[in-house]
Design a protein around this nucleic acid. Sequence first.
RNA 1: GGCCGAGUGGCGGAAUUGGUAUACGCGUUCGACUUAAAAUCGAAUGAAGAAAUUCAUACGGGUUCAAGUCCCGUCUCGGCUACCA
Length: 822
Amino acid sequence: MDRYNPQEIEKKWQDKWETEQTFCAAPKGKDLPTDLNTPKVFLAEMFPYPSGAGLHVGHVRNFTIVDVLARFYTQQQMNVLRPFGYDTFGLPAENYAIKTGISPQEATKTNIANFRKQLKRLGYAIDWSREINTSDPDYYKWTQWCFLQLYKKGLAYRKESYQWWCPVDQTVLANEQVENGCCWRCGHEVEKKKMKQWFFKITEYADELLSDIDSLDWPDKIKTMQRNWIGRSEGAEIEFEIVSEKSEKSEKSEPKYIKVFTTRPDTVFGATFLVLAPEHPMIKNLVNDKTRNEVEKYQSDALKKSEIERQENKEKTGVFTGSYAINPATGEEIPIWVSDYVLMGYGEGAIMAVPAHDERDYDFAEKFDLPIKEVIEKPENSDDTEKCYHGEGKLINSGHLNGTDSADARELVVNWLSQQGVGKPKVTYKMRDWLISRQRYWGCPIPIAYDEDGNEYPIPEDQLPVVIPEVKDYKPDNTGRSALAKAKDWLTFEMEVKDKKTGKIVRKKLTRETDTLDGYACSSWYLWRYVSAHDKSHAWDSKAVKYWAPTDIYVGADHAVAHLLYIRFWCKFFADQGYLPFREPVKTLLYNGYINAPDGKKMSKSKGNVIDPLDVIDQGYGADTLRTYEMFIGPYDQDAAWDPKSVGGVYRFLNRCWTLCFDEKMQDAKAKADKNRVIRHKTIKKVTDDIHRHNFNTAVSSLMEYVNELYKEKASKEDIITLAKLIKPFAPHLGSEMLEKMQSDDVWPVWDEKYLVSDTVEIVVQVNGKLRAKISVSTDDLEDQEKIEKLALAEENVKKFIPGEVKKVIFVKQAKLVNVVA
RNA sequence: GGCCGAGUGGCGGAAUUGGUAUACGCGUUCGACUUAAAAUCGAAUGAAGAAAUUCAUACGGGUUCAAGUCCCGUCUCGGCUACCA
């Protein structure tokens, strides 16, 4: 017998799969399989960023889950789409280019080639004819097309907003480039700077994004995170009239009201002051000569404050504007303050402060000695010991609403205020519009150009893609623009456009947008590109998307809100435009855990505790052991620590599978009785069910039990074929080799319920819930309750533990258990 | 501070609907094979006890014939979030 040699057989099968293009989901050049009546399954992992370091064990876990499912469903005779791609835009490639001068285009090509080679060595059942790469002009042409669709509908727009800015590097920084309030490159403290930026109007879909979460077969953890991120709050918008300063002469057209958002309109009688965010545009109208300097200083300090400072320093700060407003409920004049505990980006950027019933307002009022007026009576039975009561109760000090329950008062107050024209119900979201412009070179160019007056002109669809120009120096320029601005030939061009004033078609000199799109834009539609990856005339083919999409199972370990929310947003948008026949892109989401180093810590280069999956293969274990081990390591959705010794255990197990198949001494060819029939059928059922439930670890352990049993009893041909088929999703090379040796087909086996029970069963006998005896009866006797109870009570050890009378005997057929209550 | 998880042998973990707690793997010990070692094969392995048995699923209560599983309280750890009015 030849020894199990993974090196040899894995190479053999990988070569075969390569030449035969085994895993193509459709005939060559086609998007769809021939038989469209066969059920389909579309599986994908979150496509990786192809880093120079190559695959790590985390990738392997993620991709192997998809691969097990792809191979399982293939064996179940379904049409399986299992494509692959690379998310190639991003900072590492750009930084690498700045450091080495090697272009991101070049580095990406090299890294993809390395990734592809490594993926093939893992034996993944990938349809390589659909490989995509987001930085390929043939791909990002359609990313730009998507952008233009959103632009056409007003969902891609520009507005001024505050962004992180590094004053040393002269560049805008994304949130992930700000570390502890400092620039990740130079370490200098960052500031907020007002800049004109591009946004996608995701808030337009806030309500649907929230309500459809309920229908998703996604982990609760992710669903909760998305709900919190969207952060819907129902409340009211209330207008407070500003008291104009008597000394000021002019009655200009300046706004006379300050709008606030509150979820507790029932407490309006207790609003004793207003607070505006430092960025609030009306502040300049509220200050007077006495307060102006102090307020302006506070505003500019607030802008400089780093995120960390704001987080650490919860001590309230603020300044009085010098102006007053009228509480519409009480008619009292209340002071208007400015404080950074009010955020400009949420609600109206202004609040009515009710210090008696809001902890933050309470702290502020205490610090600045502002009045605190109770308007909700704490119920007597309340055990709330907080310094201010924020629960429900009866209204007090609230005029005509005294005595009303606070919960009822909310609606009454809003109705009352709206009759006076100073209030209305309002729903507010924490979610903001999605900032998409990046001052970076290595991203998808935004297909927009400007004339001298700054008017926007979309690049016509037939002129896409706007290709990234080659440059020599990848650093951003000193105006905060990306290196794209350095490609002078590219930057300006002439185009026929409709003049904004005259409406005539004129040829104009235009300047291109130098911002590129956030990488998340590129990954917001790639799942649909997979269905017709080489379509030259559409982003995706409507027939192909109708058959294959939405994605049935999507597997990843990251992007709980960002990517997984953006992809839902685009799906709903393109459904509304008639491009997609469904409104949710992913039916089932599997969110796998991380693999940590043997010491339980995160793997990292600096700690030197990284396990390289290719090393594991090359040590002699092979890809099948690596894959099976990572499925066996624990529940797929939990973090796990790498254990080199356990890898050896899985290798031993695969060796035993090999031996059963290739060592004739282990087999019993002439056996008359099918001795292993019960465990064989049980194993088929268990593995099938476990894969459906994504319990990959217990699927593997039940195969181990089966093999242990076959070692005791010797294996029949059918035992070996069944083992080969069941193990193939995990260890595809070994499974294929075994099936070849047995000259078997590759159809997933089915179990027969009638073989799941053996002739005799063991009945557990308890006395008062404690195990006292086990009796063996024939399976038919399970129906005869009286007989079993009699047998149970006759057991010596059972009798011994019955002190007096038998009060009751409980027989549970399904659990094969008798409990004697004595 | 808020929300959500989790706590089972020496270790990773299993127990799917409340029904034999500790499957499977690692480690350890013993045995077989071998001149020897590795590999392989077999056996044992929650704790205490000679045994019968008793005690064990973070801790304290409760419901139930029966609780790792359900309920109440406490502790610990992890994740997310963080002045969202």
